[in-house]
């Protein structure tokens, strides 16, 4: 019980923006609600039936009025659309320097991994004032990552990666909810986001994970799955060299190109023949069922950590994979 708040806390950079849009919408809504309620009350009383034999004059309508009450609301809604769309656009574009965190949803818990190696369940510690980017997937059904104080929500879908981001502005402890119905204990798939002062966060995170950073984990997996037998760092293997791969444009054997992002790397591990790099044979077996979603994330992070090599032009639009063997 306790006090009765009407608005949730504002704890991210986007939260006040969403609330400002809400105020605009509330103003419009309250205005039209009062207008309609007022008009009904006034007309109903002013023109109440005084005799059963009353016959009002016929009024068929008025084109001017029809145009007015179509055009004015339309104009108001277009403001709602563009304002909302611009917030949405910001929400969908994480800043490049954002802190990367991985999330895996499963019935009924959130598993969160920091690059440094810390793993948390149903808790997430993040620093204040820094943008945080979440890359998320699910091991079973669809979940949704929802932090009301940040005004952000994004579904977590099995078989693909989704992302969301936020920049906390206030230290504190905030609700994390699963917002997409996911089965029996859906309402218990909740947790807390701890926003810490940057210095506290540094202390918290510097301990590292019990087994080293996420990329280290990925590197060990890369060896134990024997990926390194074919993907050799000098390019001499039977499969493409992965050094500097992440973020580059890859030329495919069917003539098209693809950006090597998380989703592409995930697909290449689980469905290797879906996109074949130009100049290579479809030799790689699928790792579907052999590696968990968390393992895939570790591999992705390992591959990200491989490059780009120092000195290489960052983000250059050249195919990273040069076929020099057939």
């Amino acid at each position: 019980m306790g006090s009765l708040p009407l608005f949730p806390e504002q704890a991210s950079t986007i939260a006040p923006e969403v609330d400002h849009l809400l105020y605009y919408l509330l103003t419009v809504a309250v205005f039209f609600t009062l207008l309609i309620f007022g008009a009904i009350f006034y007309f109903a009383i002013r023109y109440r039936r005084r005799s059963e034999r009353e016959l009002p004059h016929v009024i068929h309508g008025g084109l001017t009025l029809e145009v007015l009450w179509s055009v004015i609301p339309f104009g108001l809604t277009m403001v709602m659309f563009s304002w909302g769309a611009s917030i949405f656009f910001t929400e969908s574009r994480p800043p490049a320097d954002a802190l990367q965190i991985y999330a895996v949803g499963k019935q009924w818990m959130w598993k969160l991994q920091h690059l440094e190696g810390q793993r948390e369940i149903n808790e997430l510690h993040i620093p204040m004032g820094r943008a945080v980017r979440l890359t998320m997937t699910s091991e079973d059904v669809i979940h949704s990552f929802f932090v009301p104080a940040f005004r952000t929500k994004e579904d977590v879908v099995p078989g693909r990666y989704s992302t969301t981001w936020f920049q906390p502005t206030k230290p504190g402890k905030y609700h994390l909810f699963c917002a997409e119905y996911c089965g029996t204990n859906h309402s218990r798939m909740i947790g807390w986001i701890y926003v810490m002062e940057p210095r506290d966060y540094e202390n918290w995170v510097s301990g590292g994970g019990p087994t080293g950073s996420l990329a280290d984990e990925g590197g060990r997996l890369f060896e134990s799955l024997a990926c390194s037998n074919c993907h050799k760092p000098d390019g001499s293997g039977r499969c493409p060299n992965l050094v500097g791969l992440f973020g580059r444009i890859v030329q495919l054997s069917n003539g098209s190109t693809v950006v090597a992002d998380e989703a592409y790397i995930r697909e290449s591990i689980l469905q290797p023949t879906a996109k074949i790099v130009a100049g290579y044979q479809p030799l790689m077996p699928t790792f579907q069922g052999l590696v968990t979603e968390e393992g895939v994330l570790e591999l992705v992070e390992y591959i990200k950590s491989l490059g780009p090599k120092p000195g290489a032009p960052a983000g250059a639009n050249v195919p990273v994979v040069v076929p020099h063997q057939q």
């Binding site: 809400l22 919408l25 659309f81 917030i87 005004r151 929500k153």
Partner: peptide
């Protein structure tokens, strides 16, 4: 109109 607006709907959907 609130839920049709992208910025609000992200927060209030579900």
């Amino acid at each position: 109109l609130f839920v049709a607006s992208l910025g609000i709907d992200v927060h209030v959907t579900d």
